[in-house]
Design a protein around this nucleic acid. Sequence first.
DNA 1: TCACATTGTCACACAATTGTCACACACATA
DNA 2: TATGTGTGTGACAATTGTGTGACAATGTGA
Lengths: 223, 223
Amino acid sequence: MKTLIVEDDRTLADILAFTFVREGFEVINAYSGEDALNLWEDECPDLMILDVNIPLPDGFSVCETIRKNWDTPIIFLTVRDNEEDIIRGLDVGADDYISKPFSPRQLMARVDAVMRRSSINIEEDHYQVGTVFLDLEQKSLTIPGQDPIFLSESECRFVHCIMRYAGQVVTSQILINCIWGPGNGNKEMLRQLVHRLRKKMGVQEETQSIIETISGIGYCFCQ
Amino acid sequence: MKTLIVEDDRTLADILAFTFVREGFEVINAYSGEDALNLWEDECPDLMILDVNIPLPDGFSVCETIRKNWDTPIIFLTVRDNEEDIIRGLDVGADDYISKPFSPRQLMARVDAVMRRSSINIEEDHYQVGTVFLDLEQKSLTIPGQDPIFLSESECRFVHCIMRYAGQVVTSQILINCIWGPGNGNKEMLRQLVHRLRKKMGVQEETQSIIETISGIGYCFCQ
DNA sequence: TCACATTGTCACACAATTGTCACACACATA
DNA sequence: TATGTGTGTGACAATTGTGTGACAATGTGA
């Protein structure tokens, strides 16, 4: 998956690039509207992250120009709570927006949602990170070179949740809410679920370490 | 959000309280400097509105005393255009001032601005200085080119505190109060926390020197 | 009814985190 | 040189968090 990041603030551009690379995206950086349009033509990215405030053609114009010929997803970056920008951005064809400052998790959640809505993406009932494949309909998890692992309902929710944020930590509280709904689970139940899932996944070192524990915080899906 | 209002004129104090309550703040009233200092210790407010002209220790002394151990935002109330007061107020560590008389809207605008500048702002779930990135939710510290470092609760509070004042020295006392709360930590614990954190951050020179010791005063976050 | 999978709960072992102590070293001062 | 202060470092114990096995309750299908 190829992402074009259009951001003239180099520091923020670095952070963005870092976040996407960590998620397994290929990243191209543009630092002005002109750059963006040229690179768009040359590279044909699958997704664009576009700051409104960039030099030369501003974000809105860039978005408008591209939308004439493409329907690739575009996510806008705006300063917090600037409603005018948000409305205008969506108006010129952006798929979503995110207000600065934002956390990497917030950003990836938006990317996820946009990719899911767009046709680029795999169907809703599949999930793939690296070579690991989760089938939400069959509730099966496939790791190359192994037989598929069939998951129970709650195990499936757990895997789904950590796969969505692959490479990032997901807090225990978020997981509990995702699996059992707010106020219905607890840490003890989560601990047991992870234990049973790891057991099911087998003793292989590589497989075991897919679910990493981050002490005091939560769990993390590692490629 | 808890606000301590220090104002001996009961009428004005009531108006202030009303304004804050209407905005969803919890309000505590103090009518003298002594009151203010006691309530400060007991209630740990998130914000203080402080009239200069209050009995017993005056506003300046109160502010000075509190600033020795806390970095919670303080807004001064002064009579109109008394520049001496304003300068002296900011000098003893106030974050902003507002001249009497003022409109509730003016006041809340100042409060908003001060809260935004300080990290009390609850919505802020991450912090960025240069290329260093702190995720408060994941409790992770990311330096480009390195794996994220996962922090414990107290380590996270420490990093949060020094990152807020990046480039400035933060005194040991302020750090201790930020990390363990009033009367719960000591310099020995702080020293050990820094030691463990540096160890966790690895042997890389660049990474190590992010936390600089300022002998006899405290610590400083360097780019 | 029985076998079986799934789930919630408990008890216990082990690991991570934290508070405390002891000691080494650098530096300033008399 | 001797002394005191501030800091870095390692070791230890107490506390807290996590992994694991066992058991019972529930639901499902044969």
